[in-house]
Amino acid sequence: MTHTGGGRAGRALFGIVFGGAAVVVLVFLLLPVVAIFTHVSPADLVGQLGRPEARDAIIVTVRTTLIAQVLILVIGTPAAYLIATRSVRSRAVTVTLIELPLVMPPAVAGIGLLAAFGDLGLLGGAFSALGISIAFTEVAVVMAVAYVASPFYLRQAVAAFEAVDAGLVDAARTLGAGPLRVFGRIVLPLALRGLAAGAALSFARGIGEFGATIMFAGSMQGVTQTLSLAIYRQFDVNFDLALALGGLLIIVSALVLLTTKILPLWTRSKSTSDSRDAISSSI
């Protein structure tokens, strides 16, 4: 037997083991997706989405997701920039703290949110005094989504800002640009692709949020019941409706995935200039 590995028999064995593994992986991951769309006819799926439970869930999901993502972008972007421009050590510590909710089980996030913002929680007393109750309202959904989804954006945004050449920031400053102008004209445009990738990840995580939401916001139709919660509610009541909602989420997720794959290709072909490539030899 040579070191290149065993002739015809070896090659056949390789084909069976490795090829078989690849087939198993693909079938296992894609079969549930296919099943959702084949179990019930497409026309039935669309029809199910017209039911009031489905419409309420879609409205709650779109509204809470939109608000949560806007908050994540508007507050997360400047916060990530500040973190990215700190010293290496404080940056590492802060990013690690931000990543904690990322590795936390969603149920723990939910109970934590209750313990902090619930009526009997850490800040609950202060909110109650103002006549505000957060838990089991749409605000709670937004908070739960923002809590589990924002670390995905923040982590990516910090990395994107770090990747912007500090020399360009120095150059902009010597040209008279203050911090806001440096951020708006130089840093933000150059980090945009990374920020978009982070936003897509955060959106994908947020729209599928389940555990933290059900603990902190409950599952009340038309108020806090998002698509994911509605699937759980409907699967023993109306399985076809649960499948229809599932199909809808698959389509949305597939679109997000496609966007993250296509966006870099598109921006790259549009401008080849973000790599500061070696200086060419001719003048």
């Binding site: 050449d165 020399g167 120095d170 150059a171 640009a177 500061r276």
Partner: peptide, 20 residues
Amino acid sequence: VPVESRRIGYVFQDYALFPH
């Protein structure tokens, strides 16, 4: 005085042109 208020032109070693 902040860098941006010094009125000092600086040509960097790698020129630091804004790529975008």
